[in-house]
Design a protein around this nucleic acid. Structure first.
Lengths: 343, 343
DNA sequence: CTGTTAGCGCTTTCAC
DNA sequence: GTGAAAGCGCTAACAG
């Protein structure tokens, strides 16, 4: 704490020759409500300014039972996807008079739990969480303890909770449908191993689209582990080419980047040799020769919604259940241009 | 605050049939110091666990006069550069038992001040700041108020304070020297308008290198405004080509990206038509045909150092002045390949 | 209209 | 060895 030398309420009260309650009333704009004398109010305000009085948020929070702070735990704050989300959450919370407290879980349940504990010890009013593999227990405990929270980006199957996510099934479905409509049929998908429910949704969307096109036997999903993604994407791309796929759907931005790297090195031509649809844009792809078709997640909306839902619970005191899936949209560009007929 | 239904010290004390002081001693590992009875200590611990007691950080901080929290204000938390820094600060603070509180200033002095106030009202123990244009006053006030802080990435000329930055002069100098050694002589630089001291340092390094090579008359710096960078970089690149430069030094990552975009669109060949050296790498450039030479800022070290300096002040209670400039290193790749002789 | 007082949950001095 | 009590800075019920 750094304001040892700062004036407290008591100091202001003393300097103004009134009680601390009066000062508190005036400085909290309750002079009407408590019918404080106008002159006194003016004097208090003046003196508070002169003394450069700043209320001690700690004491206020302790007394009021609310810190006006929201804890936000994402996978990795330095990952562009979550960095963007963080920024939008920052803005949204600020607009609502809250402050966001960020931390990274590194997709590790143990870390997740630790960060949750740290947030709670800071007495946050609520939490926005991107749940990771295996964090179900931690999150269930939150429910039991009546900690207000909302899940973001992913939800936990079998756990009834507030969440805001992309409509992942639709995303996978739409992306695949688009490729089908462009004339591709041997469509492979690269996604993550593990049981991230958002990835799952995208996979299922892909599967359904393939089935709807009577291409069930062409379904092929390569699941790469989250560790050493680069190498496994390399292998996946290799296999995909081997088996003669004509299109590739990448389930995340990181996967897209890694696959694309290998594609570039292998002199595979996009979209002629292989059409490509990724997830999320980013200036990363600005310098790739073929502008990429990608599924655009409405990050800002997702971030804002998560804040809305949480703050609504906080302010209303009502415990409600809001489960929101937001549809993104496919940004069509050259990497999925209509398939040329082989001569 | 969300732990209304949680046990407090008092509850534990009551359940254990002892006073709150004892509980406090035991739970803070001071049972030796206060010679608490072993059995009592065990019982207290057991009961605390049973009651799932978690200390209230607010009350603790209020009482102890320290929140173990560090406020961090960067330009924009979603900007990859600052997102990386944030992540490293997050790790470093955590290792030292502190929590980082992030906010963005948007390179706007007014916002900066507002964010500083918000941080202070959360009673952070200290601040790590990336000062923006015009934030000198805000920061001076911090000094006067004895708020411990350290500037990161940039310092403020004429203001004596702790800071950790890149050795920007050396960076500009080394980058330019490298281009000179590769046989380029008509080297232009694109940097930002305004008086960001880090940019200044890079420019000065460039100038000095040119002078040292007796190419003073070739010095040409295009300063683009921070708003609408894209368009102005476009113009700058255009001018640079017009005037027949053979190499380009970009002062920041954003500038590099914007210039490169235009370069690509204009079919200017790198490095044959124009050699290029940028600042900071990033997967952005992975898909550009010519691997880029760039000046690599030691982000992690800078971030960690800033935390070290701040925490050292905090823990020692000593007010010291540490001004640290860290040398980065040039990563040489193809975009600055030795100049070919024109036939 | 204004002041007194209790208390948020915790730590720590001091007395026993 | 242990407990009572003060107090961090603030709010708000209550009394006047």
């Amino acid at each position: 704490m750094i304001r040892k030398n700062n004036a407290s309420l008591k100091d202001v009260a003393a300097a103004a020759g009134v009680s601390t309650s009066l000062v508190s009333f005036v400085l909290n704009g309750k002079q009407k409500q408590y019918r404080v004398n106008k002159d006194v109010a003016e004097r208090v305000k003046r003196i508070a300014k002169e003394l450069n009085y700043k209320p001690n948020g700690l004491a206020k929070s302790l007394r009021n039972g609310s810190t006006k702070t929201i804890g936000v735990i994402v996978s990795d704050i330095s990952n562009q996807f979550f960095a963007d989300i963080a920024r939008h959450i920052e803005s949204a919370t600020e607009e609502k008079g809250y402050m966001a407290l960020f931390a990274s879980s590194d997709e590790n349940a143990g870390n997740m739990e630790k960060q949750v504990e740290r947030m709670l010890s800071k007495e946050v009013d609520g939490l926005i969480l991107v749940p990771c593999n295996g964090s179900k227990d931690t999150i269930e405990v939150l429910s039991e303890r009546n900690v207000p929270f909302v899940l973001l980006d992913r939800h936990i199957p079998g756990l009834k909770s507030n969440y805001v996510t992309l409509d992942n099934f639709k995303a996978g479905y739409d992306a695949t449908m688009h490729l089908l409509q462009q004339g591709y049929s041997k469509i492979s998908m690269v996604s993550y191993k593990g049981d991230l429910v958002n990835i799952y949704g995208r996979e299922n969307g892909y599967r359904q689209a393939m089935r709807d096109a009577n291409l069930e036997e062409e379904i092929s999903i390569f699941q790469v582990p989250m560790e050493d993604t680069a190498r496994h994407c390399r292998k996946a791309v290799h296999s995909i080419i081997e088996k003669g796929s004509d299109a590739l759907l990448c389930a995340t931005n990181a996967i897209t980047i890694n696959c694309l790297r290998h594609i570039k090195d292998s002199n595979i031509i996009i979209p002629d040799d292989l059409a490509l649809v990724g997830f999320d844009g980013g200036s990363v792809f600005d310098f790739f020769y073929a502008p990429l078709t990608y599924f655009d997640q409405p990050l800002e909306l997702m971030a804002r919604k998560s804040v809305d839902v949480l703050v609504e619970m906080l302010e209303s005191g009502q415990s409600m259940m809001q489960q929101i899936e937001i549809a993104g949209k496919l940004i069509v560009r050259e990497s999925s241009a209509r398939k040329k007929q082989k001569k």
